Every structure is written in C-alpha cells, then in structure tokens.
Simulated assay, not measured.
Amino acid sequence: MSNASPTKSQSRHRVETTSRRVLGLPVKFIGFWTAVFVPFVLLALIASGAVLQAPQLFAALLGANLVGLVVGRDYKQ
C-alpha cells in the first residue's frame, strides 16, 4: 500500500521551494529594473562629463548594473 500523505522531508522541500519563489521574485524584480534603468544614468554621466569628477560613482553604478543583469535575468520567465 502506498501512503498518500507526504513525508516531512517532502513537505519541508515544498515550503523551502515556495519561500524561495516568493522571496526571489522581488529581488529579481529589482535586479531586472536596475539593469534596465542604470545604463541611462551611466550614459548621462558620460555625456555630462561627470565621470571625470566622480569615477567611484560611475564604477559603483556599473557594478550595480552588472549585478542587476545577473540577478534579474530570469524575471517573469
């Protein structure tokens, strides 16, 4: 006879998967939209010449864009 009720490990795995999905969606959302909008800010910094005055800001935004690309790559797929 088979047991119809899930085991504790199956239930725990289901809860972990659901919580990852619920918690991961806002992170992917932020990553996706960061990857979309930051390049426009970078272009504005380059066009205005502010890159020479604030190279750390440019580097931080470039890093944020790269992180956003990686984190948000699977958003809404």
Rank of each mutant, 00 (worst) to 15 (best):
M1G: 14
M1C: 13
S2Y: 13
A4N: 14
A4D: 14
S5I: 13
P6M: 04
P6D: 09
T7R: 01
K8Y: 15
Q10E: 14
Q10L: 03
Q10D: 12
Q10R: 01
S11D: 10
S11A: 10
R12V: 10
H13I: 09
H13G: 06
V15W: 15
E16P: 06
E16C: 10
T17Y: 15
T18M: 13
T18F: 09
T18W: 13
S19D: 13
R20I: 03
R20C: 07
R20W: 09
R21G: 12
R21K: 11
V22P: 02
L23E: 11
L23R: 15
G24H: 04
L25K: 14
L25S: 11
L25R: 15
V27E: 15
K28E: 12
K28G: 06
F29Y: 11
F29E: 01
I30H: 10
G31W: 00
G31N: 05
F32K: 02
F32M: 02
F32G: 02
T34M: 07
T34F: 03
T34Y: 01
V36E: 01
V36I: 09
V36H: 07
F37G: 04
F37C: 03
V38F: 08
P39F: 01
P39K: 01
F40R: 08
F40W: 10
F40S: 08
F40H: 10
V41T: 04
V41G: 05
V41F: 08
L42Q: 02
L43C: 08
L43F: 07
A44S: 09
A44W: 08
A44C: 03
A44G: 06
L45W: 04
L45N: 12
I46L: 10
I46W: 06
A47P: 02
A47G: 06
A47N: 02
S48E: 01
S48Q: 04
S48M: 01
G49N: 00
G49D: 00
A50Q: 09
A50D: 06
V51G: 10
V51H: 09
V51S: 08
L52F: 11
L52I: 09
L52R: 10
L52H: 07
Q53N: 10
Q53W: 14
A54Q: 06
A54S: 06
P55E: 00
Q56I: 13
Q56R: 14
L57E: 01
F58L: 00
A59S: 08
L61E: 00
G63A: 02
G63S: 03
A64D: 04
A64H: 06
A64G: 11
A64C: 12
A64T: 08
A64R: 04
N65W: 15
N65A: 07
N65S: 09
L66S: 06
L66H: 07
V67D: 04
G68P: 02
G68R: 02
V70W: 01
V70H: 02
V70K: 07
V70P: 00
G72S: 03
R73C: 09
R73K: 07
D74E: 12
Y75D: 07
Y75F: 05
K76M: 08
K76I: 07
K76T: 12
K76W: 08
K76H: 13
Q77D: 15
Q77Y: 13
